[in-house]
């Protein structure tokens, strides 16, 4: 589903990614771990098409297409979803209105009929149940006045509604207490599917207690320095990132 080869990228003229290779197949969950400044969030930004990130070398293939050729909104309509580390507050933009615009943008793109307000509300209610979210968040402005946990849950809720093929979760666990972490993780686990892949970017191992990955990668200095199964995460928990930096 996702093939990254020798990816180099710069931000503000500084090279952050220095040759990433990563292969993710449908149905898999990959965790990317690494110390602060290793390039984890840069990788998420490059994959989602954020402005200001310059790819200088390498290729990214998604579902057989060159992902880097696609604008950010096209990528999203093609099924790439980024759960933001810091979800953006949009004062004055109603959450439901925003979600319906997003869902219908995807449906138009796929040649499916748009959902009217009633049909959309039905889909929303179903998804709310799946994620155990409070309905009153929907009629507020996007992320405005939400607690840290509510913002992260809103990201997962959007993901559930948009039904992406490739979901990239950028430090979705940061700032969550243990209950919120469990809820968010349960939401993600319910969305695991044979035709959907996840890339979890995290600093800490604890997220992986709840969402068990198929593959764990360690990113350091802009490269993937180690890959392994879930036991690698536990090993890092014990030894810290110092050992991988040395490696």
């Amino acid at each position: 589903m996702l093939e990254i080869k020798n990816l180099h990228a710069r931000v503000d003229g500084r090279e952050i990614l220095k040759g990433i290779d990563l292969s993710v197949r449908a149905g898999e969950v990959h965790a990317i771990m690494g110390p602060n400044g290793s390039g984890k969030s840069t990788l998420a930004s490059v994959l989602s098409g954020r402005d200001g990130y310059e790819v200088t070398e390498g290729t990214v293939e998604y579902m057989g297409r060159n992902l880097l050729d696609l604008a950010a909104d096209t990528r999203a309509r093609e099924g790439v979803f980024l759960a933001f580390q810091y979800p953006v507050e949009l004062p004055g933009v109603n959450n439901l209105y925003f979600l319906r615009a997003a869902v219908n943008a995807g449906r138009r793109h796929r040649g499916e009929p748009e959902l009217d307000a009633g049909q959309f509300l039905k889909a929303v209610r179903k998804t709310l149940k799946l994620l155990d979210l409070r309905e009153d968040l929907l009629n507020r402005a996007v992320n405005v006045g939400f607690s840290g946990g509510e913002k992260k849950r809103n990201e997962i809720f959007q993901m559930a509604l948009l039904e992406p093929k490739l979901a990239i979760l950028d430090e979705t666990d940061s700032g969550l207490d243990i209950d919120a972490l469990r809820q968010v993780s349960e939401g993600v686990n319910k969305l695991r599917a044979p035709d959907r892949a996840f890339v979890l970017i995290t600093h800490y191992q604890r997220l992986l207690d709840y969402i068990v990955p198929d593959v764990v990668h360690v990113l350091a200095g802009g490269r993937i320095v180690r890959s392994g199964d879930k036991s690698l995460a536990l090993e890092l928990e014990k030894t810290g990132y110092a050992s991988v930096n040395a490696a």
Binding site: S48, G49, R50, D51, A71, A72, D73, A76, R77, F81, L82, F84, P87, V88, L90, P91, G92, V93, F98, A101, A102, A105, G106, H109, A141, Q158, L162
Partner: peptide, 25 residues
């Protein structure tokens, strides 16, 4: 704008949504 686009909303619509939100808020 990027947040809206990352959800599949095209740049023109995203701009309109943010202008409307700014004035309406």
């Amino acid at each position: 704008l990027f947040y809206l686009r990352s959800r599949g909303i095209d740049p023109e619509t995203a701009r309109r949504m943010l202008i409307d939100a700014f004035v309406t808020e």
